[in-house]
Design a binder for these strands. Structure first.
Lengths: 236, 236
DNA sequence: TCAAAAGTGTTGTGAATACACCCATGG
DNA sequence: CCATGGGTGTATTCACAACACTTTTGA
């Protein structure tokens, strides 16, 4: 019956965490960074990296901090956005924990081995991580599933795909991102036209990159645009 | 330096609330349900309805309960979805409060006057609520802004617009939803074609409704489809 | 019979596909 | 000179915006 936020606080023990789904593309597969849990519960099982929100910290700040701690990278160079929150009463056996999940993505990142928390962290193809035989801790399977769905949708009407490519990149690099995440083959020539015609998606550097085979490809960098209008539709 | 969730919990005082942006369309205006706060802080100011998440309660459950308490309606008949979470350390002067914002929408709802918490609740046009001269409590202006943006985007690629119409409804009713929320005029004939051709968006009841003027319009009910493919684009 | 809104038909424009074809490089 | 991928040209198809036009009602 209580309306809105009113003092005094009818408080009960709650903790708030952030969990981060960090995507990258490795060996033409969408991969997620998973850590091996070092403590109970779920000791030894795979889990998404994450941690507690600290007293003076914004949610985005907590996510950024965890991201840097886990990957050892400059967090500002990675795309990071809030996914959604999860708060089922029984999601953590130790008590009430609400987690705010984040989605991060970056270009083919190095395997995290820096002496930090990243020990025990490994890139795992999402196909493997979501396989029925693979066990994820807590409700992390649901979080990962939602993150994949979000990433797929984002490709359609935003330019986040460029975030998976290290600059400078070729149009083929960018196309492979779409093909891997959507799991479809795209027509190279039509894809090129669509992308180069969309203002602000990519801009040419003027350089070229020698390929393993065939004609060298022109190089591009990200153009800064955020939305993709009209969207790149998945069905054609 | 802590990784993931680990015992013992490095807990500090946190509260978790849900706040709900409840939209409806009244007098051809997108309107939001705002309550007048009865206590400090922000006593007397307008705020989004909301309240604390209870110990045994899921986030969605808390949102649904608050929705029912505020509107006195059957919550299951309303569209309800999580928007995002807000957790700036200073967003509530009484302490650390993380809120999970929800977006709800329904057909022209009655003014809530039932003897519950709804006293002091009123439908407010969002244009007025977001006017610089209008004061909203906490960070509710930001939440409302995000909710409007989400609603606008949802119209494009989902069928939520039907949730604003009481069944049975006419194609014009549905079109008015788009026109009001997007703030544009749509061509009636092209809109009709688009909507009726999209499988599962609307299905005819066979009935007609006498209009104030002109030819009676055929009546439809929602067809059950969730996504709208291809999307209804805002720009021509 | 007129106004007003519902609903249909038609046409021109532009985007997306499918695919033929040329380009540049390594072997 | 052949294989391989990069990149361009182009015809066909299709969706959509624009708008003329017909239908059905109340006044």
């Amino acid at each position: 019956m209580n309306r809105s936020v009113e003092a005094p606080l009818p408080r009960f023990p709650v903790s708030v965490t952030v969990d981060i789904v960090i995507f990258t593309i490795r060996d033409d597969e969408l991969s997620v960074l998973l850590i091996e849990r070092g403590k109970e519960p779920h000791l030894g099982r795979s889990a998404l990296p994450g941690g507690y929100v600290r007293p003076g910290e914004d949610l985005d700040g907590a996510a950024l901090r965890e991201l840097v701690e886990e990957t050892g990278l400059d967090g500002r160079s990675l795309h990071l956005e809030q996914l959604r929150s999860y708060g089922a009463p029984d999601r953590d056996p130790r008590g009430r924990v609400i987690t705010v999940a984040y989605l991060a993505l970056g270009p083919d990142l190095p395997t995290p081995t820096a002496g930090t928390d990243a020990a025990g962290a490994a890139w795992t193809p999402v196909g493997k991580a979501l396989d029925p035989g693979f066990t994820l801790s807590f409700d992390h399977r649901a979080i990962l599933t939602d993150a994949v769905e979000r990433a797929r949708a984002q490709l359609e009407y935003t330019t986040v795909a460029a975030g998976f490519c290290r600059e400078p990149f070729t149009i083929s690099d960018l196309r492979r991102v779409y093909e891997v995440i959507w799991g479809v083959a795209l027509d190279p020539s039509n894809f090129r036209r669509k992308v180069t015609k969309t203002a602000g998606f990519v801009e040419p550097t003027g350089e070229r990159r020698a390929a393993e085979a065939g004609r060298p490809a022109a190089l591009y960098r990200f153009g800064g645009a955020r939305v993709l209008y009209p969207p790149l539709l998945r069905t054609g």
